[in-house]
């Protein structure tokens, strides 16, 4: 579809004034700015291996599978995360919960096996969004390494151990509060992140009927 000429907004080069057109004042101005940074030196460098980065709480790192208050895996094997996953890295085998066990009285299903290929994963966080019971979450662990591909296939035990490892850390993911798991609908006291760029009311995208489709 060709672009409607009416939609094209031409940005005019502003006219140069006298000092700008002689170039040199601008050069000296720039040199002053950079020189000030050299003279007034406040580095923002983090010394990485010694100093761990202070990551924001919505950082998306290695997954974990949360436990509920009885210590069971919280996952109900609904396959929503595997369906939502764009990289198709989640593989779940569901099993019916044992009916006669009072311990499992409140659950229909649980995952018999739950494997995430951490090498395939693109860490988009779609699984986290899709999960109705806040079971799968992305943690702050970013320095994931492994010696083989097999090692990077995280199974249920491994994912649960990630939970045990991170639930008491200062960087526990936002949706769970120190291991105490809330319900999926507890979104009320979370602030939403704004869009990356501001959208004006007269933008074409803002006027579109649905997201992603223009006219």
């Amino acid at each position: 579809m060709p672009i409607n000429p009416k939609d094209i907004e031409w940005v005019e080069e502003p006219a140069m004034n006298f000092w700008e057109s002689t170039y040199l004042p601008a050069v000296f101005d720039g040199l002053r700015t950079t020189g000030q940074h050299v003279a007034d030196f406040h580095p923002v460098t983090e010394f990485y291996p010694e100093q761990k980065p202070d990551l924001p709480s919505h950082y998306r790192g290695v997954h974990r599978l949360n436990r509920d208050d009885k210590g069971r895996v919280k996952c109900v094997a609904c396959m929503m995360c595997a369906t939502a996953c764009p990289a198709r890295c989640i593989d779940i085998v569901a099993q019916d919960a044992p009916k006669d066990d009072p311990h499992w009285a409140d659950r229909d299903k649980f995952p018999k096996s739950f494997v995430i290929d951490e090498l395939k994963c693109i860490y988009c966080g779609m699984c986290e969004e899709a999960c109705p019971v806040d079971s799968i979450e992305l943690t702050n662990i970013f320095d994931l390494t492994g010696m083989s591909r097999q090692e990077m296939m995280f199974d249920k035990e491994k994912l649960l151990s990630v939970f045990d490892q991170t639930k008491d850390s200062a960087h526990n993911p936002v949706r769970t509060h120190k291991g105490k798991l809330g319900h999926a609908s507890d979104f009320t006291n979370l602030h939403t992140l704004g869009p990356a760029t501001s959208v004006r009311a007269d933008d074409r995208s803002a006027k579109a009927n649905s997201a992603g489709v223009i006219e």
Partner: peptide, 27 residues
């Protein structure tokens, strides 16, 4: 030189001529 620089035309500013008619038809 600076004075001439303020007076010179900006060759890469928008062309003032209207877009050609074919583009409208195609649109």
């Amino acid at each position: 030189a600076g004075l001439i620089g303020t007076q010179s035309s900006r060759p890469f500013a928008r062309r003032t001529s209207e877009p050609v008619a074919e583009a409208h038809g195609h649109h």
